[in-house]
């Protein structure tokens, strides 16, 4: 049986509900794509049904043959494709096909990170306890995707809506992140 990285934390995260809705979305398909050629990027975008983001620190989402797919900008010529669980092998094959003979790589990194969705009016305030990136909508509008440190842990943070964030954290750091999050919420739990 496969156990998600935060399986032991689901109850404790659910107990934060008066401050923040926190939910783990485990086992998402994730593929790291390295490609710089604009034509290959466009071909992969149409194969997955999501145009790859062209601007730094943004992500794109769309629906195609693999359902809802998101493509995150991780660096120049580097992207992370995320989709529903169990699709990584097919997406890898299709992406490699779209890449063709152009230099690049598609690697299944699904096990590397687990996904958490944070939602609530206090979400930004709680994240600010450990994350120095300005998440105010004026500087981080919906569609922003940053890699940064949160309480010394490397994370990928997506702004998916108003007061709604998706955080990808390394599986081995997930429990630390959950513990930190519980601690950061503590002061709001007292008054809630």
């Amino acid at each position: 049986m496969t156990v998600s990285p935060l399986a032991a934390w689901h109850d404790r995260l659910a107990a934060l509900a008066t401050v923040l809705d926190v939910a783990e979305v485990p086992f998402r398909s994730q593929l790291t794509v390295r490609v710089s050629d604009p034509d290959a990027i466009a071909a992969m975008g149409s194969a997955l049904g999501v145009p790859f983001p062209s601007a730094a620190c943004t992500f794109a989402s769309g629906t195609g043959r693999f359902g809802d797919v998101e493509v995150l900008w991780l660096g120049p010529g580097e992207f992370l494709v995320t989709a529903s669980p169990g699709l990584q092998v097919t997406i890898e094959e299709v992406s490699r096909g779209a890449l063709g003979t152009v230099g690049g790589s598609v690697v299944d990194t699904s096990a590397q990170r687990t996904t958490l969705v944070l939602q609530g009016p206090l979400a930004r305030q709680v994240l600010a306890h450990g994350c120095s990136v300005d998440l105010h909508p004026a500087s981080a509008p919906v569609g922003t995707c940053v890699q940064t440190l949160l309480a010394r842990t490397g994370i990928v943070l997506q702004v998916t809506g108003e007061d709604r964030y998706t955080i990808l954290v390394r599986s081995s750091f997930a429990e630390y992140f959950a513990a930190w999050l519980s601690d950061a919420c503590a002061e709001y739990l007292a008054v809630a």
């Binding site: 730094a56 620190c57 660096g75 120049p76 120095s132 990136v133 940053v146 890699q147 940064t148 440190l149």
Partner: peptide, 17 residues
């Protein structure tokens, strides 16, 4: 903490570098 302007990501904390 000092901010360092990454040419791609913009200003970030020095600890990230």
């Amino acid at each position: 903490m000092q901010l360092i302007p990454c040419p791609w990501c913009g200003p970030r904390e020095e600890a990230e570098f």
